[in-house]
C-alpha cells in the first residue's frame, strides 16, 4: 500500500510500510502489517478500529516503546528528515517526551503512585529543557493550570491516588505537552473516563492542538471522537489499514464494509435505535488469520474472490487522498461498486 501524499504540505511525521510482530510460543504474529500514514503540523489524524486491531502497537512503535516479545520488523518512521528506527536508543530518548509525546488509555495506572504530580511533570522539563528543580516545578504548576486543573500549586504536591480519573488524564496531558512536542499521540485517552469527562478531555486536546500547532494522532474506537476532532482518518482491521480518507468523506460515505459496520454500530439521533447493529463476529486472532481479506468471515458482501488478498483502490476524490482495500472497488467485482 503506498503512502498518503498530502498535497503541498510537507508532512511532519510519516510512517511507511510499518511491520511489527510479536514472537509468541506458537510462532510470530504480525500485529501491524504494512501500515503507512502521515501527519502534518496542526493536523489531527484519527486511527479507528476495534480492540486488538493494532492501534496501540502502531503508536508505541512510533515511540519505539515496543518491548519483548515484540519487534519492529520493517518500514520507516520518518520525522525531521531521519528514520527514527535508525536512531540509537540515546538519540531516541531525546525525541521521546520532547518532540513526540504520548498519552495513554489508562489514567489510573499510567502515573507513578509514589511520586508527586509535580515531580512527574517536571521530570521531562529537567531532562529535555535542562531546567533546575525549582524552575521545572514552577513550569509544572503552570502546565497544570493550562490543562484547567484548579489549585495547581496544591495539586502539584499531591500523589496520583488523590486525583480522579479525569484529573489524572489532565495531568497526563500536561506531562505530554510540557516540552511543547511536535507530535502528540493519544491512545484512547478517554476510553476509561465518564462520558461528560470524555467530552472535556477531547475539547482540551483540541484546544491545545490549536494553541501549540502540534500534530495529533488520535487513536480511538469511538467514531464520535473522530467526528469531533480528526481531519483525516485511517481505519485499521487486524493489523492492516483497510480504509483511509478525509474525516467527512469516511464518516458520511464509508467505502469498506468494515467502516460501514462501525458506523452502523454508532447510536445516532437521526436514526431509529433498533436499526443499531453491531458487526457480527470478532476481530480474528492474528495467529489464525483467514486467507485473503481479513474481514471476509464477518463481511456480508463476501464473495469467492475475497479469498485472495484485496488490492488497494485509491482516488474517489475528497479532501485527503482516499483509499480502500476491498475487492468491491476493483473492476473484477463487476459494475455495482458504489452500493
Amino acid at each position: 500500500m503506498d503512502t498518503l501524499a498530502v498535497q503541498g504540505v510537507p508532512s511532519l511525521l510519516s510512517v511507511r510500510n510499518l511491520r511489527v510482530s510479536f514472537n509468541m510460543k506458537r510462532g510470530a504474529v504480525r500485529a501491524v502489517d504494512d501500515v503507512s500514514f502521515e501527519v502534518s503540523r496542526g493536523e489531527t489524524l484519527g486511527i479507528v478500529g476495534e480492540s486488538g486491531c493494532g492501534k496501540s502497537v502502531t503508536a508505541l512503535s512510533i515511540m519505539r516503546l515496543i518491548a519483548e516479545p515484540g519487534r519492529i520488523e520493517g518500514g520507516q518512521i520518518r520525522y525531521g528528515g531521519v528514520n527514527l528506527l535508525d536512531l540509537s536508543m540515546r538519540e531516541m530518548r531525546g525525541i521521546r517526551g520532547n518532540k513526540i509525546a504520548m498519552i495513554f488509555q489508562e489514567p489510573m495506572t499510567s502515573l507513578n503512585p509514589v511520586l508527586t504530580i509535580g515531580s512527574q511533570i517536571s521530570e521531562a522539563l529537567r531532562l529535555h529543557e535542562g531546567l533546575g528543580r525549582r524552575e521545572a516545578l514552577d513550569r509544572a504548576v503552570e502546565m497544570l493550570s493550562v490543562v484547567n486543573i484548579p489549585m495547581p500549586e496544591k495539586r502539584a504536591r499531591e500523589y496520583p491516588h488523590q486525583l480522579s480519573g479525569g484529573m489524572r488524564q489532565r495531568v497526563m496531558i500536561a506531562m505530554a505537552l510540557c516540552c511543547k512536542p511536535d507530535v502528540l499521540i493519544c491512545d484512547e485517552p478517554t476510553t476509561a473516563l465518564d462520558v461528560t469527562i470524555q467530552a472535556q478531555i477531547i475539547s482540551l486536546i483540541e484546544d491545545l492542538k490549536v494553541r501549540t500547532g502540534a500534530a495529533v494522532i488520535m487513536i480511538t474506537h469511538d467514531l464520535g471522537v473522530i467526528s469531533e476532532i480528526a481531519d483525516k482518518v485511517i481505519v485499521m482491521y487486524a493489523g492492516k489499514i483497510i480504509e483511509e480518507g478525509g474525516k467527512t468523506d469516511v464518516l458520511t460515505n464509508p467505502l469498506h464494509p468494515y467502516t460501514e459496520g462501525l458506523l452502523n454500530a454508532v447510536p445516532r439521533i437521526d436514526r431509529d435505535s433498533d436499526e443499531l447493529s453491531v458487526i457480527p463476529g470478532m476481530v480474528p486472532n492474528l495467529a489464525f488469520l483467514p486467507e485473503g481479506c481479513r474481514f471476509r468471515p464477518r463481511c456480508r458482501y463476501a464473495r469467492e474472490i475475497c479469498r485472495s488478498a484485496p488490492v488497494k483502490a485509491s482516488g474517489f476524490g475528497g479532501i485527503a487522498p482516499r483509499g480502500v482495500s476491498c475487492w468491491k472497488f476493483q473492476p473484477a467485482w463487476g459494475g455495482e461498486a458504489d452500493v
Partner: peptide, 14 residues
Amino acid sequence: SQDYIRTARAKGLA
C-alpha cells in the same frame, strides 16, 4: 510491566 513505567520511558528518561 506496569503502565507508569511505560509512561516514564515515554518521557525519554534514561
